[in-house]
Computed example of a mutant assay.
Amino acid sequence: MAPLADLLLSTLPLKSLGVPHRLTHYVNGKTPLSTPQEVFPTLAAYLVTIFGIQKWMKNRPPFKLQFLFRLHNAFLTAGSLLLVLLIMEEVVPQIYKHGVFWGLCDVKMWSERLEFYYMINYYFKYIELIDTVFLALKKKPLAFLHVFHHSATALLCYTQLNGRTSVQWVPIAINLTVHVIMYYYYYATAGGAKIWWKKYLTTFQIVQFVIDLFVVYFATYNYYAATYFPNLPSYGSCAGTETAALFGCGLLSSYLVLFIQFYIQTYKKPAGKKPIVNGKANGVANG
């Protein structure tokens, strides 16, 4: 039973509306942004656009864009919340029925609904690129962490969809939860609210990657142990391609290092020195 998903499907019956199969299922080469020929030029265009805007704005006054910025953040807050609820509605009963390892690694954890949710999450990553456009138009500094994380995460989601990794619901669900809080923070502070818990949001972002790495390294280890080193202890193999698993481990490891570095630079500075992050001393990594 999936009451929330069933309610949405009864409200928006995709099949009866004639939505093509390639838009509700990930079909390599047919689903939008499902090939390297689409993904890499799109991400390259993102970089050209933001640095082009930054150069264009050099001798111009910054735009305020408060209404659009708040609307953007409200959409991502609500969208992230809805999506994480849908994912957990699908995942939790399976773990309750079959156990944690099955829920992390069994090939059957790649259900039609989860595939569709992963696609939506993937497209969210392109919408989130607009974050940087706002920063550039407001003449805020484009921090390396921000630009790298935004572009690399879109690529990460692309590789995991192609690799059909069963474990990906864990980092996706945690990331969506972080984004519910983070985008609400940006929505609220853009309206003038004073948020006291910004430091704890950064801590949550770091904890996110610690959990992610524990889970993805656990899944990757079990895959390699079961496949290539049967004498090593393991629970069994894990669904997904080797390329996707290794790329995920490597990129998430780099995120952890970068976010810890950000935390140290932001909160461990001598008193009186406020680091500038995304153009203001807000102490939250937009990632």
Rank of each mutant, 00 (worst) to 15 (best):
L4F: 12
L4H: 09
A5C: 14
G18K: 05
G18N: 11
V19G: 03
P20F: 05
H21K: 15
G29P: 11
K30C: 08
K30G: 07
K30M: 12
E38S: 06
E38P: 00
A45G: 10
F51Q: 07
G52F: 01
I53T: 15
R60T: 07
K64I: 12
L65Q: 02
R70Y: 11
G79N: 04
V92I: 13
P93E: 12
W102V: 04
L104K: 03
V107D: 13
K108Y: 04
R113P: 07
Y118Q: 05
Y122G: 03
F124Q: 03
K125N: 08
I130M: 13
I130Q: 07
V133S: 08
L135G: 07
K138G: 00
H146R: 11
V147L: 03
S151N: 05
A154L: 05
N162Q: 13
R164L: 11
T165C: 15
Q168E: 14
W169A: 05
P171W: 09
I172S: 06
V178K: 03
M182S: 06
Y183V: 07
Y184S: 09
Y186M: 08
I195R: 03
K199H: 05
T202N: 01
V207A: 15
V207G: 04
V210A: 12
D212M: 04
A219Q: 11
T220H: 03
A225D: 02
A226L: 07
Y228S: 03
N231Q: 15
P233D: 05
P233H: 00
G236N: 04
S237I: 06
C238P: 06
G240S: 06
L246M: 11
L251E: 10
L256Q: 04
Q261R: 09
Y267G: 09
K269T: 15
P270D: 14
K274N: 13
P275G: 06
I276D: 14
V277E: 11
V277G: 07
A281C: 12
N282S: 12
N282M: 08
